[in-house]
Computed example of a mutant assay.
Amino acid sequence: MSLFKKIFGTGEVSGEEKNADANHFLPEQDLPVDEMFTLNFKKNGGKFIYCDNIGEVHEQFLNVLEENDWFECEALCFEPKLYSLLDENKLIYDKPHHPKFILATCESLVAEEGSILFSSKQIKQYKPSDLPDNMIIYATTSQILGNKSDCLRSIKIKYDKEYPTNITAIKYFEKAKDEDFLHYGSVAKNLYLLLLEDL
């Protein structure tokens, strides 16, 4: 649509012109946050596994191990509540030298960009580049939030006074074919998300 027509409102606006005026870079506002997260997460190359109950989480974890042949290997894990998954599959996680993957939870899932937000509670003081290339993340649907501001607000409420450090997001889950300035300094991870329905 020409600038003249926009200012003076002359003439009818065709459907094509309306579509041309729409900003294709803004997220669709009418999508629920869970759908928005799923679409953006998959677009970023993440592997999404939905689980109805905790039994399915254990089953799908086993499937990921089988798919990648990660049996009898070392894993990195800092959260005692996840040790049972590793123990039942006879994986070594006590002071690993060459871990094949990290098993962790997360602070939240950012729907707006399809990323996963971590803190020192899950990854200690490790930078994303220092973590194994393979990640298996266990999260729940109640952790899906609209944007990073919502996620930081949630951390503030959750921890009250003893805020975690090393708050970082991982957004890219496969190597970019054409690296551009948006990918500069980011680390791509082969990431599986085991998402448990808890709402």
Results as ranks from 00 to 15, higher is better:
8 F>P: 05
10 T>G: 00
12 E>G: 01
16 E>N: 10
17 E>N: 04
19 N>E: 15
20 A>R: 10
20 A>D: 12
20 A>E: 13
21 D>Q: 15
21 D>P: 00
21 D>I: 10
22 A>T: 14
26 L>P: 00
26 L>D: 10
26 L>K: 11
28 E>I: 13
29 Q>F: 11
30 D>F: 14
31 L>A: 05
32 P>F: 04
33 V>F: 08
34 D>G: 01
34 D>M: 06
35 E>Q: 14
40 N>T: 05
42 K>R: 12
42 K>N: 06
42 K>D: 02
44 N>T: 06
45 G>M: 06
45 G>T: 07
46 G>F: 08
48 F>C: 01
51 C>Q: 07
51 C>Y: 07
52 D>L: 09
56 E>N: 05
57 V>E: 09
58 H>Y: 12
60 Q>L: 02
65 L>I: 11
68 N>T: 11
68 N>E: 14
69 D>T: 04
70 W>C: 06
71 F>L: 10
74 E>A: 04
74 E>Y: 07
76 L>S: 06
80 P>W: 04
83 Y>R: 02
85 L>H: 13
85 L>C: 09
88 E>S: 13
88 E>P: 01
89 N>K: 00
89 N>G: 00
89 N>S: 00
94 D>K: 13
95 K>I: 02
97 H>N: 15
98 H>D: 15
100 K>Y: 01
102 I>G: 03
102 I>Y: 01
105 T>V: 02
106 C>M: 12
107 E>C: 02
108 S>A: 15
109 L>W: 08
110 V>I: 15
111 A>Q: 03
112 E>F: 09
117 L>M: 14
117 L>W: 01
118 F>K: 06
121 K>P: 00
123 I>G: 01
126 Y>H: 15
126 Y>K: 11
127 K>W: 07
128 P>D: 03
128 P>L: 05
129 S>R: 12
131 L>N: 05
131 L>R: 04
132 P>M: 13
136 I>A: 09
138 Y>C: 09
142 S>E: 10
143 Q>C: 05
144 I>D: 05
144 I>L: 04
145 L>C: 11
146 G>W: 09
147 N>H: 14
148 K>Y: 08
148 K>C: 09
151 C>R: 03
153 R>V: 08
154 S>L: 01
155 I>S: 05
158 K>L: 14
160 D>N: 15
161 K>L: 14
162 E>P: 00
162 E>Q: 13
163 Y>S: 05
164 P>H: 04
165 T>L: 08
166 N>D: 12
168 T>S: 05
169 A>M: 10
175 K>C: 04
178 D>Q: 09
179 E>S: 13
181 F>Q: 08
182 L>A: 11
182 L>S: 12
185 G>K: 10
186 S>E: 09
187 V>N: 15
189 K>M: 00
194 L>A: 08
196 L>M: 07
